[in-house]
Computed example of a mutant assay.
Amino acid sequence: METEAWEKLCRRCGRCCYEKVEFEGRVYYTDVPCEKLDLETRLCTVYDFRSSGRPGCVLLTPDLVRRGILPCDCPYVEGIQEYPAPLDWDEENP
């Protein structure tokens, strides 16, 4: 898929911009947003240069998406059979 078409899939929910923890092979969301996420608009404030503007931010690729880092209702994961969507840390680990 072309980069422009890939980028247009995003609904701008901001959920992928929350910190995640990988534990025992599962990905969990925390309630800690990236400091570059505008919580009102749900947009990244350094999106065009996020790789350098926010060290640790990774570009979404089809291979990375298949690892289970996005919510199950995200357009990027549509059609992935048995998608391992992240869990909320607080719900699974009280």
Rank of each mutant, 00 (worst) to 15 (best):
K8F: 06
L59C: 00
G53P: 01
T61L: 11
D63W: 10
R11D: 13
Y47W: 14
T30Y: 02
L87I: 10
I80S: 03
E92R: 12
G56R: 02
Y28L: 11
V27N: 14
V46F: 03
Y18W: 02
P33W: 01
K20G: 11
G68A: 13
V46A: 08
V65I: 15
V65G: 05
S52W: 12
V58P: 10
N93E: 07
I80L: 15
N93H: 10
L59K: 14
I69Y: 15
L64R: 14
Y76H: 14
K8A: 14
R54M: 13
Y47G: 00
P84L: 02
A85H: 10
W6L: 03
C57I: 02
D63V: 07
S52F: 14
Y18A: 00
T3G: 01
R67C: 00
C44I: 05
P33R: 05
E92M: 07
R54F: 11
N93M: 03
R66L: 11
L39I: 13
T41N: 06
L87V: 01
E22G: 04
E40K: 15
Y76G: 12
T30F: 06
Y28F: 15
W89Q: 06
E92V: 09
G25V: 05
E2V: 13
L43A: 06
P62D: 01
R26I: 11
C44Y: 11
C34L: 05
D88E: 11
V58Y: 09
G79S: 08
E35I: 07
L60H: 08
L70R: 05
D73N: 15
V46T: 12
G53S: 09
P86R: 03
E82R: 13
E35T: 13
I80F: 10
V27A: 00
V21Y: 04
E2A: 00
L60E: 09
D88F: 09
C57L: 01
C13W: 08
L39N: 00
T30D: 09
T30V: 07
V58N: 00
L70W: 10
L37E: 03
C16T: 12
K36E: 12
L39S: 01
W6D: 04
C17T: 02
R66Y: 12
S52C: 12
G53F: 07
D73G: 00
K20N: 01
Y83Q: 01
C74R: 09
D90S: 11
T45N: 07
P62N: 07
L60D: 06
P75L: 02
E91F: 03
R67A: 04
R11G: 13
F23M: 08
P75V: 08
P71V: 14
R26T: 05
P75N: 14
T41D: 04
D90N: 05
I69D: 04
R42W: 02
D73W: 14
E78C: 01
V32Y: 07
S52D: 13
D31E: 14
T45Q: 15
C44L: 10
P33F: 02
M1N: 07
L70D: 11
R26W: 00
G25W: 04
R50C: 02
I69E: 06
E4I: 14
D73A: 05
R67K: 15
R12T: 09
G56S: 05
D48W: 14
P75H: 09
V58H: 12
R12H: 11
W6Q: 01
V32A: 00
Y76V: 08
E82N: 15
E91N: 07
V77N: 08
C10V: 12
R54Y: 09
P84C: 09
C57G: 03
